[in-house]
């Protein structure tokens, strides 16, 4: 399809979508109104389970099943990315290259590394009390580790951060979530039921299973981010086509031939 024709087809589709969307919006409750039926049910349910952060209660208590599915999507995507970007036979690790890092960058990196990791743990641990939780804190933890890369060198990051434990962490986090769900079945007959005592409202030990599930998700997300970023970093910096491949032009062709020979 030519580009102009494609734009015409798109204009028809987008125009139709926009018209239907506008019709739907005009019939919705007005923006900022007091009509929120979901909220009226979810807030009392969260307070009944001593959860200060209602969003966390929705995510990990009231609809924990959906979060398990969401976590599985994350898990599957990390596995697929790691599989797609794994080292192939015609690639090899690049020789260590020594670059220069500014002293100020180095200093900031080493100051921010412990601070960021602490912040990540804090966001995960208080997910049921303040805005935050396993997903947000996990991303802070996973990216915080890569300050090692910003403030140092890639080969240093690869030495300090072995990837195997993070692959395990990814699986353990997902598994722990599912196991807590099964514990709910054994205790009350409902999957992911809030079986742990709810504790005192507003304290660290409250909300029952919510902080435990937050921790499991935090481990999984942090590990998943590390595995993802390492896969992309390997592609960008760590790996190069073996000299036998004959430079960039031959790279595409060789990869194709090699695969064709193996699969057909």
């Amino acid at each position: 399809m030519s580009r102009p024709l494609r734009l015409v087809v798109f204009a028809a589709g987008a125009g139709g979508t926009a018209a239907l969307f506008l019709l739907a919006v005009l019939d919705m409750p007005p923006f900022g109104s007091r009509f929120h039926p979901y909220r009226n049910h979810s807030v009392p349910a969260a307070l009944a389970h001593a959860t200060a952060n209602v969003v966390s209660s929705v995510n990990f208590d009231q609809r924990g099943m959906d979060t398990l599915a969401e976590e599985s999507i994350l898990f599957a995507s990390v596995v697929v990315v790691a599989t797609l970007l794994r080292k192939t036979d015609d690639e090899e690790w690049r020789k260590e290259r020594r670059g220069r890092v500014l002293d100020s960058t180095l200093l900031m990196g080493w100051i921010l590394l412990p601070y960021t990791l602490l912040l990540g743990f804090d966001v995960v641990a208080h997910g049921h009390l303040t805005p935050g939780g396993g997903f947000q804190g996990g991303v802070v933890l996973g990216t915080g580790i890569h300050l090692l890369y910003v403030a140092g060198r890639y080969d240093m990051l690869r030495r300090v951060r072995p990837i195997r434990p993070f692959e395990w962490g990814e699986a353990i986090g997902t598994g722990a979530f599912a196991c807590l769900g099964v514990a709910g079945v054994l205790a009350t007959g409902a999957f992911l039921a809030n079986v742990v005592p709810h504790g005192t409202f507003g304290t660290l030990l409250s909300a029952g299973t919510v902080p435990i599930l937050n921790g499991a998700v935090g481990v999984e997300v942090a590990s998943g981010v590390v595995v993802l970023v390492s896969a992309f970093l390997d592609q960008a910096i760590g790996l190069e086509t073996a000299p036998a491949g004959g430079g960039k032009g031959g790279r595409a062709g060789n990869g194709r031939d090699a695969e064709g020979g193996g699969n057909r």
């Binding site: 007091r34 929120h36 979901y38 909220r39 009226n40 979810s42 807030v43 009392p44 969260a46 307070l47 200060a52 952060n53 209602v54 969003v55 209660s57 929705v58 995510n59 609809r63 009390l129 303040t130 805005p131 939780g133 997903f135 005192t200 409202f201 507003g202």
Partner: peptide, 24 residues
Amino acid sequence: PVYGSAPAHPSLHVMDPVVQAMTL
């Protein structure tokens, strides 16, 4: 939709937490 301390008579007038969770 985040409550500080235990509210005696919790106000229901908070943003809808369900759609916020879905956004996450």
